[in-house]
Design a protein around this nucleic acid. Structure first.
Lengths: 332, 332
DNA sequence: CTGAAAGCGCTTACAG
DNA sequence: CTGAAAGCGCTTACAG
């Protein structure tokens, strides 16, 4: 439609066969330099570009990689996607991104579409609902279809036999706890809006491993969480807070400010933030940096290795990336 | 590869022709109910699904829509993308998203790839660099190739003949100004980190239309902007701030807080924010809501209308959406 | 109602 | 070195 110039039209104009045109354009050894020149010149003149669909049909490759993200409005996933994109766009592949919107049903639809021959490989972070219901059949089916798949961030406890990429959530919180202890915090509470999410549980476990008198404030409903945090602060003995996710972090920070407490002096906070916005905000919150772009990059890299069959018979690998703590003004 | 079951394999197993199988599966009137039944049953049994690449080649449609976003880490674009996705994923099309990273060069690459027969239509918000250099040849070329394209958010001043979707930036700022005036602000300054961006200019023009003694603080470098805002506040006569973008807004809010000024009483602020995060933050900033998901939805809708040729000979249309002001704690 | 044939736009053994 | 043929997996006039 758009592209009226085809191998056939070039061949006709040059009075040679389609095969010769094709081979010339693909720089085949079989063709004389002279012919190649003629063909390439005309191709350029006519603005020829091969029909990608036809090439894919012939090569039996879609040249596309499917990505399933729980929610693009979460800045963490936006950054992961950027990391994926930077890596993939330098390859011959393209990304087709779907959003599960944290729904198991939608996630199934996405994988179903992908598995019907629409992509060569898949990158996925499972939805919250999938995580909760521990339903992984739809993911396992992907392997049975022979499509490489890499899981990232939210990794099911029971190994599914796929490559995985994630951070050391458990240890990250331990580091945060250690840091707050060094800063003389005696009463460190843990605040989370993701108590059932895998990463949330790991973070909570990390916290629990550090104290014998834990204070865990965990609610999925944000207004409820808000209330409980305020109540906890009102009791007056908490002098350190570790927040398990962006929402919990903002809630903690707001509650502290509303109560008129002085950061670092009276109470310290470490959490998870959107780095770009945090840098411009007041106060700058001390945070655990998961390096989301790096997560994306490593995830994409792992998949490309599989696709290029460089990992032919190698078992699934589990890449664990390190987080770092960036100190802001909510601790010191 | 993945899908070993094809029309051919079904045909062989049923001892009928490939055409009959194809027609049966497509519910053709030509085929007897009985045969359709047999074919469909076996197809289901074998888990047949048509090879999408082959279908596309035959139908001369890619079933894909290309989206070019300047930067996915900007929450505004993330939300626009969500709006696009919600609308498109309900259609037969899929989205393939590229990020220009605000680079003209990269944007050209994206459009070039799309125009080589990889998508049926394009949605694009031009890069900052494209905006600055006013280089639109690569976009105009798309029309010459007959590929429908819709521009959103950053719309070039000179009409390019494409459908466009954006908000009324000029009027939005006027509303914000009026609101602050009502709140008795006497000295309203305008702060921007996007002075050269189309939307930034429109917003600034809106501001300039309201006052004969304007105070415009506009710098692209954020640390420079930060400094200048602090200096302006130090002079002590500004009692109202309109910020033109997320970064400027956060910078204003921080500067005000650091200076120990009381929001609403001493100084009011209206800007642009990431709504989800703002809701949890302290203070909640009063902001101009652009309804980014709606922008995405309308953009996608416009393209689908074009693709379905329901707008065959209708000239390019310009959809202007309204913003609303959400009052937070930085004004009252 | 069913099937053979042509074609979508390519690539690639294979012959010459 | 060039080209005819087959094929990637479909669809759809056209014959029968």
């Amino acid at each position: 439609m758009k592209n009226v110039v085809s191998l056939k039209s070039l061949a006709k104009e040059l009075n040679i066969s389609v095969s010769t045109v094709s081979k010339s354009l693909n720089d085949s050894e079989e063709i004389s330099e002279q012919t190649k020149e003629r063909v390439k010149n005309l191709a350029k003149l006519r603005g020829y570009s091969p029909n990608p669909i036809a090439v894919r049909l012939q090569k039996q490759e879609t040249m596309q990689i499917g990505v399933v993200l729980p929610n693009i409005e979460n800045p963490f996933f936006a950054s992961v996607l950027k990391g994926i994109d930077e890596f993939i766009s330098a390859s011959k592949y393209n990304i087709i991104t779907f959003f599960s919107n944290e729904s198991l049903e939608r996630e199934k639809e996405c994988l179903d579409y992908f598995s019907k021959g629409n992509v060569d490989g898949i990158l996925i972070c499972i939805a919250e609902e999938t995580n909760k219901k521990k339903t992984f059949d739809h993911i396992i089916q992907i392997r049975q279809k022979g499509i490489p798949l890499v899981l990232f961030d939210r990794i099911p406890m029971q190994p599914l036999g796929f490559d995985t990429v994630h951070v050391n959530d458990y240890d990250s919180i331990i580091s945060a706890y250690d840091y707050l202890e060094e800063k003389k915090c005696k009463n460190i509470a843990f605040v989370s809006s993701i108590p059932t999410l895998i990463v949330g549980r790991l973070r909570e476990d990390g916290y629990l491993s550090k104290t014998t008198k834990p204070t865990v404030i965990a609610f999925e409903k944000l207004n409820e969480l808000q209330l409980k945090v305020q109540e906890a602060l009102a009791e007056g003995n908490i002098d350190g807070l570790i927040a398990a996710d962006i929402e919990a972090t903002l809630i903690c920070s707001s509650a502290i400010q509303k109560r008129g407490l002085t950061f670092a002096k009276q109470i310290s906070l470490i959490g998870y933030v959107n780095a770009a916005q945090n840098d411009l905000s007041y106060p700058k919150i001390s945070y655990i940096d998961q390096h989301p772009k790096e997560i994306g990059k490593q995830t994409a890299k792992m998949l490309l290795l599989r696709l290029e069959s460089k990992l032919e018979n190698i078992a699934a690998s589990d890449i664990i990336l390190n987080t770092t703590i960036t100190i802001g003004e909510t601790s010191n």
